[in-house]
Nucleic acid binder design. Structure first.
Length: 297
DNA sequence: CAAGGCCGCCGATATGGCTT
DNA sequence: AAGCCATATCGGCGGCCTTG
């Protein structure tokens, strides 16, 4: 397995149609990085973050930050593959709720997705926007596949919301939603999937507000994020930046409307400790094991 | 059915205020 | 002055939908 074939796999979205296909790629990637990296760089500010540096065939590119507390090794990933499948098959069982299995849910998905992201980081600079697009689309699809696997009806698609002026429909607002959870063809919840929140979190709050106002419903809106860190620095001094905006999150939560669930794989420390944040933000296992079922009951 | 519109993708880069 | 940190901005790309 060389870098070129890793990149060819990662850029071919057609190949990622099942959870197994994501795992297949991940295994290939973990195998590749075991012996083919130029270096593994330790982040200078939060030392559990790592950056992989490719060799000449990857023009010595340096990847996005990888959280080594979450990223599984080749051996660990491989040996847990069957277990991950079993957990999803019976997500509501007592055993799936064990701390160890909760961590596996988060780590396994994180590892698959970061394998894709890090592989795409090997693309030349003029393809960076392609990489962003592919990475985001594949993450959306991965989360949909996982939600489907536990037995929930979810699709992506457009929802046209009619806007009335003086009682007459004047036009429609078209929204593309990542996750539309339905029961008997009735929309029970709307979800957003993003690899990071950044300046895009505001829109999720506003979408909830306006959707419920225009449809005169109280439809839950939730969000699933991979992480909220990004690389900073240059020339041997690499670190990470948090990209989550706590002030915006708290402001919208208190003064507009709270979301009905916000989930991270790589959760930031302040989301566990800070008032308001810690009441609204959790790790992804909580969504799959508990919260999503409340939407469909 | 081709072309263009629309919507959403996200990390590099820029900015501005604060600290050393 | 220089460095650092948090936040704001930028903009090419993918794909579905609408239009003609």
């Amino acid at each position: 397995m060389n870098l070129k074939s890793v990149i060819n796999m990662a850029t071919n979205k057609d190949k990622f149609q099942t959870i197994e296909a994501y795992a297949d790629f991940c295994l290939k990637y973990l195998e590749f990085i075991k012996t083919n990296l130029q270096a593994v760089i330790v982040s200078m500010n939060e030392n559990h973050y790592r950056f992989f540096q490719y060799k000449e065939d990857g023009t010595y590119n340096i990847t996005r930050p990888i959280n080594s507390n979450l990223m599984l090794s080749l051996e660990s990933f491989d040996s847990n593959r069957k277990q991950f499948t079993n957990i999803l098959k019976d997500i509501r069982s007592i055993s799936s709720k064990s701390g160890k299995n909760r961590k596996l849910i988060n780590d396994y998905i994180y590892t698959c997705q970061q394998s894709i992201g890090a592989a795409l980081d090997a693309l030349p600079a003029n393809k960076s926007n392609t990489a962003r697009k592919i990475n985001g689309d594949l993450f959306e699809r991965f989360i949909r596949l996982i939600i489907l696997e536990v037995g929930i009806d979810v699709t992506d698609g457009n929802i046209a919301v009619p806007v009335k002026i003086n009682g007459y429909e004047a036009f429609k607002m078209n929204y593309q939603h990542d996750l539309i959870i339905k029961v008997d063809n009735v929309t029970k919840a709307i979800g957003s999937v993003k690899t990071s929140s950044k300046d895009r979190i505001d829109k999720i709050f506003i979408d909830k507000f306006l959707y419920n106002r225009l449809t005169d419903t109280n439809t839950p809106h939730f969000a699933i994020f991979l992480n909220d860190v990004q690389r900073k620095g240059k020339e041997g001094r690499y670190g990470i930046n948090a990209t989550f905006l706590p002030g915006h999150f708290k402001g919208y939560t208190i003064k507009l409307n709270p979301l009905d669930g916000v989930y991270y794989f790589d959760i930031r420390p302040n989301m566990r400790t800070e008032n308001i944040l810690k009441d609204h933000i959790k790790t992804f296992d909580n969504f799959l094991i508990q919260d999503v079922w409340n939407f469909v009951e």
